[in-house]
């Protein structure tokens, strides 16, 4: 049950890369009722719809620290490594990322390719 009968119109978060769109309830680093938890970037946050617990939150996405594109947290769209990078920026500056990440991305590219073909 929700507390309010007349909830304000939903604000929508939409990923500019994949188009995923979902309402969000908070933007920032300290979502309500998260106690000792702090987000390290400004995020679009909603209540976790898959948890029966009302206080569990879910981060939908944030903005790319380089190009300010609004992206979701899906590994296809963005990557967090001390900061948020959209996949486009990651690919542009791939050589600056640690090897672990580079190989990981390469592997993923391969697997999606084989899956498609």
């Amino acid at each position: 049950m929700d507390q309010t009968t007349n909830d304000p119109p939903d604000q929508m978060f939409t990923c500019q890369l994949c188009g995923l769109s979902s309402p969000f309830t908070y933007y920032g680093q300290k979502p309500p009722k998260t106690r000792a938890i702090v987000l390290l970037e400004d995020c679009y946050v909603t209540k976790d719809p898959f948890s029966p617990d009302k206080e569990k939150f879910l981060v939908l996405g944030s903005t790319c620290s380089l190009c300010s594109t609004c992206v979701c947290v899906s590994p296809e769209c963005s990557l967090y490594y001390t900061k948020r990078f959209c996949m486009q920026c990651v690919n542009k500056h791939l050589e600056q990322f640690p090897l672990q990440i580079q190989t990981e991305l390469a592997k993923k590219k391969q697997s999606t390719k084989t899956a498609v073909s």
């Binding site: 702090v38 390290l40 995020c43 967090y80 001390t82 050589e95 640690p98 090897l99 672990q100």
Partner: peptide, 27 residues
């Protein structure tokens, strides 16, 4: 892993050493 930023003009300022913790946006 980094090639001392020869190609790109922009330095992303990423830490020198990889740590999986850097991939988590929560503290």
């Amino acid at each position: 892993c980094r090639d001392a930023g020869t190609k790109s003009k922009l330095d992303l300022g990423l830490p020198a050493e990889y740590d999986a913790r850097y991939r988590i946006n929560v503290s």
